[in-house]
Write a protein that binds this DNA or RNA. Sequence first.
DNA 1: CTGTTAGCGCGTTCAC
DNA 2: GTGAACGCGCTAACAG
Lengths: 374, 374
Amino acid sequence: MQERHRPTIIDVARAADVGPSTVSRHVRGSKSVSPKVAERIERAIAALGYQPNAVARSLRIGRTQTLGLLFPHVNNVFYGHAMRTIQDEARLSGFTVMLLTHQEDARQQQEQLASLKRAQVDGVILLPAAGTNAAQVRILMGNTPVVAFDRTLDKAIDSVVLDNYRAGWEATEHLLSHGHSHIVAVNPAYKLQPLQSLQDRVHGYTEAMKSAGKSPRTILWQDADQLREDLRTALHRPGPASAILSLSYSVTLAILSALQEIPFDLHNVGLIGIDDMEFSSFIHPPLTTLAQPAEELARRAVQQLLRRTANTSDEPKGGFMEKAVHVKLPGTLILRASCGCRMAAASGQPQPIPSSQVGRSGAHREPPRNSPRR
Amino acid sequence: MQERHRPTIIDVARAADVGPSTVSRHVRGSKSVSPKVAERIERAIAALGYQPNAVARSLRIGRTQTLGLLFPHVNNVFYGHAMRTIQDEARLSGFTVMLLTHQEDARQQQEQLASLKRAQVDGVILLPAAGTNAAQVRILMGNTPVVAFDRTLDKAIDSVVLDNYRAGWEATEHLLSHGHSHIVAVNPAYKLQPLQSLQDRVHGYTEAMKSAGKSPRTILWQDADQLREDLRTALHRPGPASAILSLSYSVTLAILSALQEIPFDLHNVGLIGIDDMEFSSFIHPPLTTLAQPAEELARRAVQQLLRRTANTSDEPKGGFMEKAVHVKLPGTLILRASCGCRMAAASGQPQPIPSSQVGRSGAHREPPRNSPRR
DNA sequence: CTGTTAGCGCGTTCAC
DNA sequence: GTGAACGCGCTAACAG
């Protein structure tokens, strides 16, 4: 014999012998309810097992207290870590998070965005697929706030990203400081428009090389076979590359695979990957990486989004919405052995150092104050 | 000058000069709307950029067309893969998915479940935290269908899991077939009640060892230091262990760390991990694993859940709800080098074989037909 | 401090 | 085939 019908606020009101609005006030924590009444309500709630219907509440107040999260996928420590922090941070402000993935596909991304829009989320944190049309996103989302995460989208849309130029610069600097002079960078070859973030990393690399008087060389990764061959020649030709800079997570994976097939022992070449991996320390030698400040990025993104949602519910009269804000945070070099820091490996523990300090150490030059072109 | 107010069905009705209910019928694909009227409505929708309000609709029809997904976290290939498939599968039936994480914490899990309940999801796929009280879950969720994924919860709650007993058995068998006779299994030491799935794997291991006339030995992993020392003694004592069976993803990670610190070269010991890892092939030697059939598990879970939601909206009179169904699927041994299959390693490509075939190959004995105790 | 009333946007009878 | 009216569960005015 189970109850046919979820108890509503009215059932509770009846049971506690009060008006529905009093129950409503109480459950939302208003202090203007007398202790004795509060007590009765409390008991009624417990007795009936009442739980407020968030759907009805949302319809009434016009907000869902839900944030949409649209990521490419989740098989990446950084994504997972960011997602978790976003969830925690959102919960602190009473928001829940709805996570969707678009698999790096712009079409799927639009679909998912539409479904977030229909679900009336109060805002979305978007890690945009390559080739995303920012204008389309804006049109589709109307006045639902969007903040771009990890990859910028448009100068009109808030963003929170790694300082990619600096990341490229600093990783390169570190390799140079180990005496490597032939450093080759590996970048994905995107069919459509390339990712700005990756471009920036390349640019950081290029500038660091140039200002050290070395000539930059980039390998584009299109498929496994081609990458393997390109790496083979780069590593075996006269005046061979002595170090590799991997510009992204997926590229690092590809490089590792390729090296294994050549086969070429990682011990004979320097390697730094931008973006840390869960298993960086299990590679031989353990991989030095430039890790993104996941928590901090996540927190900033949520904060920015919540700021917008607060304004959105306002009338957009007078001041309207402020200009877009673009947050750019430095990464952290995690020194393991693959860059040439053998001592770090021997000591057992990797030595994370904020990359913002790297630039100040004697061995490194400061990168230019501002990343070029916005 | 932007529109103050999202267009509603009434705005569309006015613009098309019809009644709201006609618009409603049309948008939901009813055929009983004359072509000319349909045309007018279509135009009005496009002109206003109307999008149905899912919140209002949900309130009205009492369903949200949303499935809740509650996972421990997402930093695990299997989880990520499963999550993605669940999303795809759900979308095929017009459902969207809301993903939350509980960080292996029963308390957080309850909170998240409550929030799913409040959000009125039509069903939830739960990968339960260790120490979950099944009764509590049932009470909290009321008649919202729940299916346990990857870990069983209770015989009254639907579940879709790997055949863990068989997995333990087959992984052990494979090690035995390489001539290893001192095989040690490593299992996490849970503070609270242990996970049934892990118990089953241990049991499979134990039985396989016994029926081969060997004596099973299990190491419990409590913390890094203790594990390292236990492994050290197991590997160095007279009559040393020649192979290790890791019973879960996180344990494999711990073992890898420990081995690195001992230090002990993986080439001198056989190792199989239950649950595949993204980077299994980058370990030296590449790691043989027993992978879970993520897509199939995911699909089955969604199907089972949707079957329940269909019945739930029914009146629970007559037949009421059928008995819980428990799906158990075999895993797949992915042969790389760490188990002793050197040839597989040399050929470059790992050789996945359905574990259901393993038992039939000459070198292996059949596991008992049914897993013991339910 | 508390109860009454009127919608939020939509789907669904039920008449026409 | 089509429109009018009611209500899903809750909150935000208002009265009192």
